[in-house]
Amino acid sequence: MCLATPGRIVQINKSNDPMNSKGLVNFAGISREISLAYVPEAQVGDYVIVHAGLALSLLDEHEARESLSAIQQLQTK
Protein backbone atom coordinates (compact mmCIF):
# COMPACT_ATOMS: atom_id res chain seq x y z
CA MET A 1 0.00 0.00 0.00
CA CYS A 2 2.94 2.30 0.60
CA LEU A 3 4.14 1.41 -2.86
CA ALA A 4 5.57 4.42 -4.66
CA THR A 5 6.97 4.35 -8.15
CA PRO A 6 9.70 6.41 -9.81
CA GLY A 7 8.72 8.30 -12.97
CA ARG A 8 10.07 11.12 -15.13
CA ILE A 9 8.36 14.50 -15.38
CA VAL A 10 7.62 15.29 -19.04
CA GLN A 11 5.44 18.37 -18.59
CA ILE A 12 4.60 20.84 -15.82
CA ASN A 13 1.38 22.89 -15.60
CA LYS A 14 2.01 25.50 -12.96
CA SER A 15 -0.92 27.05 -11.13
CA ASN A 16 -1.28 30.28 -9.13
CA ASP A 17 -1.93 28.17 -6.07
CA PRO A 18 1.16 25.92 -5.72
CA MET A 19 -1.14 23.31 -4.13
CA ASN A 20 -2.80 22.93 -7.56
CA SER A 21 0.40 22.42 -9.52
CA LYS A 22 0.23 19.35 -11.75
CA GLY A 23 2.36 17.65 -14.35
CA LEU A 24 2.61 14.69 -16.67
CA VAL A 25 4.84 11.94 -15.33
CA ASN A 26 6.01 9.05 -17.47
CA PHE A 27 6.25 5.57 -15.95
CA ALA A 28 7.96 3.11 -18.30
CA GLY A 29 6.14 4.53 -21.34
CA ILE A 30 2.79 5.42 -19.76
CA SER A 31 2.09 9.05 -18.82
CA ARG A 32 -0.22 10.08 -16.02
CA GLU A 33 -1.32 13.39 -14.61
CA ILE A 34 0.29 13.74 -11.18
CA SER A 35 0.04 16.43 -8.51
CA LEU A 36 3.32 18.29 -8.03
CA ALA A 37 2.02 20.23 -5.00
CA TYR A 38 4.72 18.81 -2.73
CA VAL A 39 7.69 19.17 -5.09
CA PRO A 40 7.62 22.88 -6.07
CA GLU A 41 11.29 22.73 -7.07
CA ALA A 42 10.69 20.01 -9.71
CA GLN A 43 11.76 20.64 -13.32
CA VAL A 44 10.87 18.85 -16.54
CA GLY A 45 13.24 15.88 -16.86
CA ASP A 46 13.48 15.26 -13.11
CA TYR A 47 12.58 11.87 -11.68
CA VAL A 48 10.05 11.85 -8.85
CA ILE A 49 8.68 9.13 -6.60
CA VAL A 50 4.88 8.96 -6.93
CA HIS A 51 2.27 7.55 -4.56
CA ALA A 52 -1.55 7.75 -4.93
CA GLY A 53 -1.31 10.38 -7.65
CA LEU A 54 1.16 12.68 -5.86
CA ALA A 55 4.88 13.20 -6.26
CA LEU A 56 6.44 12.84 -2.80
CA SER A 57 10.14 13.42 -3.48
CA LEU A 58 12.70 14.16 -6.18
CA LEU A 59 15.15 11.32 -6.85
CA ASP A 60 18.77 12.11 -6.17
CA GLU A 61 21.03 10.64 -8.86
CA HIS A 62 24.23 11.07 -6.86
CA GLU A 63 22.78 9.15 -3.89
CA ALA A 64 21.48 6.43 -6.22
CA ARG A 65 24.97 5.93 -7.70
CA GLU A 66 26.54 5.87 -4.23
CA SER A 67 24.11 3.19 -3.19
CA LEU A 68 24.79 1.08 -6.31
CA SER A 69 28.55 1.27 -5.83
CA ALA A 70 28.56 0.71 -2.05
CA ILE A 71 29.40 -2.97 -2.45
CA GLN A 72 32.71 -2.11 -4.15
CA GLN A 73 33.70 0.13 -1.27
CA LEU A 74 32.85 -2.67 1.11
CA GLN A 75 34.98 -5.16 -0.83
CA THR A 76 38.05 -2.90 -1.06
CA LYS A 77 38.04 -2.17 2.67
Binding site: M1, C2, A4, D17, M19, N20, S35, A37, Y38, H51, A52, G53, L54, L56
Partner: peptide, 19 residues
Protein backbone atom coordinates in the same frame (compact mmCIF):
# COMPACT_ATOMS: atom_id res chain seq x y z
CA UNK B 1 -6.66 4.36 4.59
CA UNK B 2 -2.91 4.36 4.97
CA UNK B 3 0.22 5.40 6.80
CA UNK B 4 2.14 8.67 6.56
CA UNK B 5 2.95 7.79 2.93
CA UNK B 6 -0.68 8.22 1.95
CA UNK B 7 -1.59 11.01 4.38
CA UNK B 8 -0.28 13.80 2.07
CA UNK B 9 -2.65 12.69 -0.71
CA UNK B 10 -5.61 12.57 1.67
CA UNK B 11 -4.64 15.88 3.28
CA UNK B 12 -4.38 17.64 -0.08
CA UNK B 13 -7.77 16.27 -1.14
CA UNK B 14 -9.57 17.51 1.97
CA UNK B 15 -7.74 20.83 1.74
CA UNK B 16 -8.90 21.25 -1.84
CA UNK B 17 -12.46 20.22 -0.96
CA UNK B 18 -12.50 23.18 1.43
CA UNK B 19 -10.91 25.52 -1.13
Amino acid sequence: VGFETTAPATALTVYQARQ
